[in-house]
Design a protein around this nucleic acid. Structure first.
Length: 268
DNA sequence: ACTGGCTCCTGAGGGC
DNA sequence: TGCCCTCAGGAGCCAG
């Protein structure tokens, strides 16, 4: 599933081909995504793509006037295809480009979205927290934001208003690296330990981006297959297997609505 | 202001 | 071989 590294990998993959290209038309075959694809996306027709930006897990195709907002949800992908390539069952939208190619949005589970903004602003983007790889994401920030919060630190870390782009896999991995139990209340984590956590988040995400994401390398074959970074996962999906640090069996369980994995020995 | 739970959807994987 | 069941997961939204 696309997490921030996968989205960034997608952005880097498409930008060279899309930036500077002209969108001839927008072909919507299935408008029923997370939110219905609004008719305003047709305003993209005839426009040049200035650049492909990213905010959180949203990809922003900035046009001469207005902006297409794409979220890949759980199972989405955005790929360049030949414009005459026959669309598959889950190929919901094509941005048909001048020159014979299309940027094709595929999303079997339809948790993703394609939206329009006239001015680059959108309610979905307004309340987002800092980018984890930017300077305003720091231990001090996490510490300050978490005071008085009783939610589990894992849930806190996955809250897009706190910090964007940390999905379930990377939250589990970062907490392991930082030695913090996922169940610990966010407000009961010290500044020193948030220092370790902020560093761990950066490390995990940067590594995953280098590896091309956890899932993207195999994305062509279908959804959800592990990619290169999956080989580096230390606790995620490893219930019962030995902790790579101390050998204790990794525990797995539900925390909130999400699966959690941690070493009961190393993480407190 | 917080918190926890629900929801969308479909492919994968397990059990039989 | 095939059917049925359960599960996973991003993140907005809502109720308490």
């Amino acid at each position: 599933m696309p997490e921030l590294p996968e989205v960034e990998t997608t952005r880097r993959g498409i930008e060279p081909h899309v930036a500077g290209a002209r969108i001839l038309r927008v072909a919507v075959r299935e408008a029923r995504l997370r939110w219905p694809v609004p008719p305003e996306v047709n305003r993209a027709a005839g426009q040049l793509v200035r650049r492909v930006a990213r905010r959180a897990k949203y990809l922003l195709l900035e046009l001469e006037s207005g902006c297409l907002i794409v979220h890949l949800g759980m199972s989405g992908s955005l790929r360049l295809v030949a414009a005459d390539a026959p669309p598959g069952k889950h190929d919901h939208v094509d941005l048909v480009l001048e020159g014979g190619s299309s940027l094709r949005l595929t999303d079997p589970r339809r948790f993703g979205c394609l939206l329009w903004s006239d001015d680059g602003h959108h309610p979905l983007l307004e309340k987002l927290g800092p980018e984890p790889l930017e300077a305003d994401f720091s231990a001090g920030y996490l510490h300050a934001r978490s005071r008085g919060r009783r939610v589990a630190v894992k849930h806190f870390l996955m809250d897009g208003q706190v910090v964007v782009g940390v999905g379930n896999i990377y939250a589990n991995e970062a907490l392991f690296l930082a030695g913090i139990a996922p169940t610990r209340p966010a407000g009961r984590v010290s500044l020193a330990r948030y220092t370790a956590l902020a560093e761990a988040v950066r490390t995990v995400l940067a590594r995953a981006i280098e590896a091309g994401g956890t899932t993207l390398r195999d994305f062509v074959g279908g959804d959800g297959k592990p990619g290169y970074f999956a080989q580096e996962l230390r606790v995620y999906g490893r219930t019962g297997q030995p902790c790579p640090r101390c050998g204790t069996a990794v525990r797995g369980g539900q925390l909130g609505q999400r699966s959690a994995f941690w070493c009961p020995q190393c993480q407190r």
